[in-house]
Design a protein around this nucleic acid. Structure first.
Lengths: 149, 149
DNA sequence: AGCTTGAGTTCCCTGAGGGAACTCCAAAAG
DNA sequence: CTTTTGGAGTTCCCTCAGGGAACTCAAGCT
């Protein structure tokens, strides 16, 4: 958790940050998504301090994003995405889109994604759930909702 | 910047985090997006330390996400989103979607979005840029791209 | 009994974040 | 022309989170 606690703010961005806004958390999620699931695998792949990895994993499990599951009669555990966590991967996909576009440079994207439905190497676009037209920052007006402060 | 520098990793998520992964940065972006643009406005709205706000704004300007623009003959400045920054708001919209779904609780979403194209209160969905079908975590296979390590 | 392995804990050290007070600079007020 | 004001940071001190390496613990293997 950051020094200042965001969870009390009436803002879904702040609340989401309270769950995965700490440094390393999105990268832990990415690793679990691509199939790394054990403590030492994650630690080695990320180069994260073991202490911090423990904290992050506990935090993500507490918030229902990851599930801690034994895989042996010995005390051995694997971490897996829950439904809640799997939907967070959408966020990662949008991060990848932005990073690929603005930061990848000459070398190009480090990772590509093949879409099952069409078989093409592709990226994500944001569309309105109602009308299906593109929906970006300039295409909407924010207005207070029921849960406003 | 977090203790460990993510910018060297061959991963668009890590690189994106290097730009907006610090605590507060997404909230600064949100505030600028909704029209708060001056130092003291941002400081008061967020309750962030002035020192940290200075650091975050400088970092975001350096990375071309915000533009620092004088608005008076006196040394007064406003911060505005660049094109690069405006596209980052997509990320915030997806955060909002996830936070609304999983964290808003009884009270409901604090903020709603009206889509210009259809006039409806709506949310975003991720679609394939190629075929237009839904594209989520389970709908893709990642494979190494040209910029892989 | 001793070794190995996965999964954490513990400990010390550095440095980022919080908070409040201080500075700087140009225009407006007196 | 001196003083005030107000926006935009700076400075300083203090605490606590993150890095890193060593240590622990509980099975199973030899």
């Amino acid at each position: 958790m950051q020094r200042t606690d965001f969870s009390g703010m009436a803002c879904s961005i702040a609340r989401t940050l309270d769950v995965i806004g700490e440094p390393w958390s999105p990268l832990v999620l990415r690793d679990v998504y691509v199939g790394l699931s054990r403590f030492d695998e994650l630690q080695a792949d990320l180069g994260i301090s073991r202490k911090v990895l423990t904290e992050r994993l506990n935090h993500l499990v507490e918030h229902g994003v990851l599930e801690r599951r034994p895989y042996d009669s010995r005390p051995r555990y694997e971490y897996h995405l829950t439904e809640k966590g799997t939907e967070l991967v959408d966020l990662l996909m949008v991060m990848v889109g932005w990073g690929d576009r603005w930061l990848a440079g000459e070398a190009g994207p480090p990772v590509l994604y093949r879409h099952h439905a069409c078989g093409e190497i592709s990226g994500v676009d944001l569309r309105c759930t109602h009308c299906g037209e593109p929906m970006h920052a300039r295409d909407v007006d924010p207005l207070p909702g029921p849960g406003a402060a």
